[in-house]
Amino acid sequence: MFVQRFSATRRGARLARMLAVLQLDRWGHPYGSPASETVALVVAELAANAVLHGRVPGRDFEVRLRHEAGHVRVEVSDTHPAHPKLPAPDPTAEGGRGLLLVEAVATRWGTSTRTGPGKTVWAECDTYKGPTECRYPNGKVSTNG
């Protein structure tokens, strides 16, 4: 298991993604592999949300990774009490699609309460080493391999 707290800043979010990729490499999923790319995207999006929407001044956010049979569970906890919603994206906006991306690449995702103030947003990412698989929001699957 990997657990680390980060400052609720853009630098903290970037470091969280970099250390997640390093940990995946240690678990046998090298940089650039489908599992590494998926976990990097999920950590980047959830950490960015923790910094942008879950930040409470003076409080850090936490990233927890668990390597389990066939998947990696990513958990990002912040101290803001509001739970995220999956909004309809504004096609003209430059952002606001992070949870849609997480939903598209993760096997499943959700939120839970945590001890103390705040919440945890979690996602499970497959670590299957066969052909690259992409699940689209409409349910279609595309394989490359």
Rank of each mutant, 00 (worst) to 15 (best):
M1T: 13
F2C: 01
V3S: 11
S7H: 11
T9Y: 00
R10M: 08
R10V: 07
G12Q: 08
A13W: 07
L15K: 08
L15I: 10
A16D: 00
M18S: 15
M18A: 13
A20R: 04
Q23Y: 10
L24I: 07
R26D: 12
P30W: 00
G32V: 05
S33I: 06
P34F: 06
A35W: 04
E37C: 10
T38Q: 09
A40L: 00
A40Q: 01
E45K: 06
L46M: 12
L46N: 02
A47P: 07
V51C: 07
V51E: 09
V51A: 01
V51H: 07
P57M: 00
A69C: 03
V74A: 09
V76D: 06
V76T: 08
T79W: 02
H80L: 02
P84G: 11
P87G: 14
P87Y: 11
P89A: 14
P91E: 08
T92N: 12
T92R: 14
A93F: 03
G95H: 12
R97L: 13
G98S: 05
L100S: 15
L101H: 09
V105Q: 03
R108E: 15
R108V: 01
W109R: 03
W109G: 02
R114A: 14
R114D: 01
T115D: 15
G118C: 09
K119C: 10
T120F: 01
C125G: 03
Y128F: 11
G130L: 03
P131E: 12
T132P: 03
N138Y: 00
S142F: 11
G145H: 02
G145N: 04
